[in-house]
Design a protein around this nucleic acid. Structure first.
Lengths: 229, 229
DNA sequence: TGACTTAATTATGAATTCAAAATTACGTTG
DNA sequence: CAACGTAATTTTGAATTCATAATTAAGTCA
């Protein structure tokens, strides 16, 4: 038998592209914590690659705002600041709104059913107070709407900005009250998707994002206050 | 005296960053025409750099959609397709709309005056039928509105998408009728900016972008038809 | 002892090198 | 002479090397 330790790896993609994906996961997963210096040497060892492709990946991540490059000093994982949140969420809101409008123009009955199913699962997660599951399904719903919008550019733009907001589980700041409200908002989202009511869906998605902004900012400020002790 | 043949080059920024900017200019200026293979070796010679920083820059440009990388085959300057235009313009429209809303919240009287002045200059360019000048001032107006929105994330997102639409002077498809309409739209834009009427400005900017989309698509299809002969 | 200088070490940025893939050129065969 | 297969060349992707900047450590002097 021919030696082939990872059969799935046809190595169809280049190293730097693979590294971009892996590093993104490390960053949004928190393994590469916000604020720390990117341990270039360690990562090279960990992935078994040389510095060249790793550094190429860092350049791409920097242009996406996930790391910050300082000339002759290296790369740092960016932190999520209040002002950044106040910038990004309104933009995401506008993009979500247009995605809702476009989705209503193109979505199929099957896709609506799928979103309905996801919604039910999400409600179950909510009732179990299973935050991880809730977030995961929540993302799937938003992604399903994006897919229905039939606009790859929009999808890419949204995901790039979402990534920046996902660093280090910042979204995990759900008070009981906020969580309840979010679920109510999602009920409206489902309704308007099912009705293919583009305008109302757009407005609901944008309001939803604004609520999220407020809630994330509040949490961040609590964090800041706590860390000052 | 110390030898210093290019005094302007303080080289404060890294090579790859500089190269990203230079290559962007070459691409949107048409010197690197859509569809051609990126002449890596030539560009290295032209800029007097090695392949490493140039290739880093290409990775960044690829993530911005200005070039397309094919594993083991190299990089190509992307072409503007009808479907891409149909994707990007609606997204740009949504971003422009939100930028109008935010601008009305933050813009100062001085900034309004500046936009008014730019608008007058643009009208003069229109009356002289000076397309280059018209486009240049047009861009400045949109940029001024973006600046007034006080949202760097929004600015970055808009500019990235705008760049993709600027390849090879595609915007230079102004019929007499379309040009007239565009100027009328800009009159409304100025009015609503001056009134700080966010909602109406948002709608006007979005409609403006939609008109642009239609016009660009029409022109692209004429191009395609012409090239098939 | 503490602040400042200077030397040693480390990390970064970019050029160079090298192996592998793709392309081109060439020769062979039907 | 056309199509296929093989060899030579070129190009790419990535590792390595090297010069320089930044950081740390050591030493000196008040």
């Amino acid at each position: 038998m021919i030696q082939q330790e990872n059969p799935q790896v046809i190595a169809r993609t280049s190293l730097h592209r693979e590294l971009v994906d892996r590093l993104q996961l490390l960053i949004i997963g928190g393994e590469l914590a916000p604020g720390i210096k990117v341990p270039e040497r360690d990562l090279c060892a960990q992935f078994g690659v040389s510095r060249t492709p790793l550094r190429e990946a860092l350049k791409v991540l920097a242009s996406d705002g996930l790391v910050r490059l300082e000339p002759n000093r290296g790369a740092w994982v960016t932190t999520v600041t209040v002002s950044e949140v106040n910038e990004v969420f309104p933009v995401l809101g506008a993009l979500d709104a247009i995605s809702g409008e476009l989705a209503c123009e193109h979505i199929t009955d099957a896709e609506i059913d799928e979103i309905r199913a996801l919604h039910s699962q999400m409600i179950e997660s909510y009732e179990r107070r299973d935050l991880d599951s809730y977030f995961s399904i929540n993302q799937k719903i938003h992604h399903a709407i994006l897919l229905a919008a039939r606009n790859d550019t929009l999808t890419t733009s949204c995901q790039a900005l979402s990534l920046r907001m996902q660093r280090a589980r910042y979204l995990a700041n759900m008070t009981e009250g906020r969580w309840y409200d979010a679920v109510q908002e999602h009920e409206k989202i489902l309704t308007f998707v099912a009705e293919r009511n583009g305008k109302k869906l757009a407005k609901t998605l944008r309001d939803h994002m604004e609520s999220k902004r407020v809630s994330v900012v509040r949490w961040l400020q609590n964090q800041d206050a706590a860390s000052e002790e």
